[in-house]
Design a protein around this nucleic acid. Structure first.
Lengths: 355, 355
DNA sequence: TTGAAAGCGCTAACAT
DNA sequence: ATGTTAGCGCTTTCAA
């Protein structure tokens, strides 16, 4: 692997001239520059990153922390969506991307790459909550960091997020506007930290209270992330005799899949018996029938913005902590329709009579 | 960010002693070592990667090239599966992972990270064919490289792949064993290089010829990667009057989704009208009914193995080019069943009469 | 057991 | 316009 020195020798100049040519190179005679560039091409020379980093203290690399547990399709889609944005923005800015932990194993030292000065800053993809040790070190060392999908209130940590509360509200309004009154929301267990889902839940409640006041029927289903437990909670609520919700708003598309499976088992048809709306925008690619109405987050944009913020943050040494909220777009689908009997009376046949 | 020198001052030794302590450190008095370690802890010191890299020529980072076009769910799942394996293995080996291009844009300089000595070697995830420029440079510079999902016959380039031919054969045999005789295979357009799919196609043909000799009915559907074109090819073959295949073996799970959509449109039921088998193992998580029989590749293992091979390759400077073939596992599902009327007579009602 | 000196590839500051 | 010198943080070699 050739070095500046070798290029210099070949071009018959000193190595510093080579350095000048590489770094925009003011004050180099045109003929000299030509010779140097020639030599560079002939040798296939490219500056060594380590030498440069040692001098400048920068290494043009950003680290991505993406701890995630399941590795299921939705999580993959979310991660890759954001990652594509990050990667594209980095490429345009001549940065590289170092990924650290994709799979969470509990004892990963997430910030090591920064301490080793392998990266100039880090992006955290908030599928899990960032723990306090990390947050503390970020603040202490003033490590440039942008969090995607969460809003940590810590000095110097920037974030990029979507307006989940608003999206939850808007979506619920749309369901109400179809004539539904008894609308269930599928959330997650309360002890599972997930600000995105909780935001959506908040919006759901606000919309219902606003529309129906104290007469609002709030029914929140809770389960873990795994589809089995989601399926269970749906079976329980929609399987019991008597009046059941006429619409189900799922906080994730993952839950939609589990709900569809539960509905199939119960003989419930979408949307004639129950309307169904999801969140994440991954479902359309499955060509499910009926098309499931859902919400899509601008993942790639979020990734790109995170990179921009990170670069700004590490360049202006004055850390200006701030965040950016992205809107969520609703994707219509046939799965959202008016309830069969108008105002939320549930007139579907029982599961038994259908099978 | 503290340096060795600062640690040394604090511990009252010279910086070289600190270096010794860090690198396993023989010849250091126990008490000295203690003091140094103490200082390291107090300062939160971690050796700078650049300084070390400059000396050793190694930087304990591997690059991953993963050019891909669509960013659809299946591709994401494949990529992430492999990536998880790579990342886990790297973490165990104290390496970092640098990802280069995820989205292909045609003019990416994939090997730049190596030339800049940011990485010690590279892994290529073969969703697209590696072009000759890259292959040439890999060979010229003797860049350690492992390809996943393809078998480039180039000096010094190792690979990890699955036995697609065998899997195609085995799967077709299973379909034959159910009593099917007219079995279609969904491949891709011939000008689209995809050794995995072509391998499966080869296996499919071998199984049919072996079972039925010259009387074998080989029907290969071709389309692009996008679901619309797949849907079109399925509609065409299964929508035409007269005898149509009683089973469809799709080379990817993506095609399965498109095929299901086409079947729905044609009023074809799976498996009562047509049996359906996929490839990739991503479908089970969708809780589709009926469960689709498919094949799963050991993606994580493949990623891990690629890392092991790469490390071996870059450590023993004698490049020993070789490859490793992983088996594919069949996942049974109700979508594969005997044909309705025994030996492949197609007795289903026409699409029209059903709707 | 410890330290001093040199050098890895590069850039910045200061000559010429 | 070009070159010289020093030094980034570290390891390796040689000396004490």
């Amino acid at each position: 692997m050739p070095t500046q020195k070798e290029v210099a020798e070949r071009a018959g100049v000193s190595f510093i001239t080579v350095s000048r040519v590489i770094n925009n190179g003011a004050h180099v005679r045109e003929s000299t520059r030509k010779r140097v560039e020639q030599a560079i091409r002939e040798l296939g020379y490219e500056p060594s990153f380590a030498g440069k980093a040692l001098n400048t203290g920068k290494n043009d690399t950003i680290g991505v922390m993406a701890p995630s547990g399941f590795g299921d399709m939705m999580e993959n889609a979310y991660l890759m969506g954001v990652l594509r944005g990050i990667e594209a923005a980095c490429r345009e800015a001549n940065k590289d991307v170092l990924i650290s932990p994709i799979t969470e194993n509990g004892n990963t030292d997430y910030l090591r790459p920064y301490r080793q000065r392998k990266v100039d800053g880090m992006i955290y993809i908030g599928l899990r909550r960032m723990n306090n040790t990390i947050l503390g070190e970020l603040a202490n060392r003033k490590i440039p960091c942008v969090v995607i999908g969460d809003r940590p209130q810590v000095n110097g940590v920037c974030w990029v997020d979507t307006d989940n509360e608003e999206a939850g509200y808007e979506t619920t309004r749309r369901i109400i506007d179809q004539g539904h009154r008894h609308i269930a929301f599928h959330s997650i267990n309360e002890d599972m930290y997930n600000p995105n889902i909780f935001g959506r839940e908040k919006g759901y409640k606000r919309a219902l209270r606003e529309a129906f006041g104290s007469g609002a029927t709030i029914s929140v289903l809770r389960a873990g992330y795994d589809r089995e437990s989601v399926r269970g909670s749906v079976l329980e609520v929609f399987g019991k005799p008597g009046e059941t919700p006429t619409a189900l708003f799922c906080a994730t598309d993952n839950q939609v899949i589990a709900a569809l499976s539960a509905f199939r088992k119960l003989g419930i048809c979408v949307p004639s018996d129950v309307s169904l709306v999801g969140f994440d925008g991954f479902l359309p690619s499955f060509l499910i029938e009926p098309e499931i109405a859902t919400n899509v987050q601008p993942l790639e944009d979020m990734g790109r913005t995170a990179v921009t913020m990170l670069i700004a943050q590490s360049e202006q040494h004055a850390a200006q902590p701030h965040g950016k909220v992205f809107p969520v777009s609703f994707i219509p689908g046939q799965s959202l329709a008016p309830p069969r009997n108008g105002q939320g009376q549930n007139g579907r046949k029982s599961a038994e009579s259908r099978r």
